[in-house]
Amino acid sequence: MASRNPAVMDPILEARGVQKWYPNGYHALRGVDLTVHRGEVVVIMGPSGSGKSTFIRTFNALEDFQQGSITIDGLSINEDTRNIEAIRREVGMVFQQFNLFPHLSVLDNLTLAPVLVRKRAKAQVEREALELLERVGIGEQAHKFPGQLSGGQQQRVAIARSLCMEPRLMLFDEPTSALDPEMVQEVLEVMQELAADGMTMVVVTHEVRFARNVASRVVLMAEGEVVEIAPPEQFFTAPSHPRTQQFLQQIG
């Protein structure tokens, strides 16, 4: 049983009544609340169009919102660009499409931000980056370019790139959805190890096995609202909300 209850209930992320309308008037988030504690792994599931990706992208201000509040590690997201940059330094994000920088080598992908943003010495960052690449199992590819790697390898590089900034919170936006089936497992394993090391994670995914084995709590979103939040054993075996039952039936 890998799911854990955080020893100290110390919130790192608090979203209160978040509402978002897209410029075309579509009401994407209809008052969403979520609290994530340090060391927790929160998995967000839900049908497509339920607003789960939009929601996770508000955490590092890639999407704006019109009402409500989001506080991350004491910093609240507002109009102030500096504040947003400060939050993004502490929050890593892994995307569905990897979004590696194709014009830089794998190693340079990792070292770019720490050197530029954290103003750290390049040689030291490179040593750490090589260790991180070793940890996600691609140490020997450090000098290749992203285009030469498989999808699974690219996504592991993307995870290492985020980790190289030493974030306090990691966001995963459908990290395995763009991968060929045989590569999903290698990425999930890296994420599982990361969780075991105590990283706080919010993961949007359709991988039921990962949610069952790794999540502290599972969230179901539908139509821009949080429908249910429960520990995985309860979520998957005895969901309280009919919408959750319907969703679980649909994904079989």
């Binding site: 590092n60 940059e85 929050v91 920088f101 194709p102 014009h103 770019l112 931000a113 530029l116 943003v117």
Partner: peptide, 25 residues
């Protein structure tokens, strides 16, 4: 668009993201 988002999600400022990530490509 994901290139700019990735650069910004790493804490890079807009000018840094443009110069280091978007413009070279």
């Amino acid at each position: 668009r994901g290139q700019l988002e990735a650069a910004q999600s790493l804490g890079m400022t807009m000018p840094q993201s443009l110069v280091q990530v978007v413009l070279p490509q």
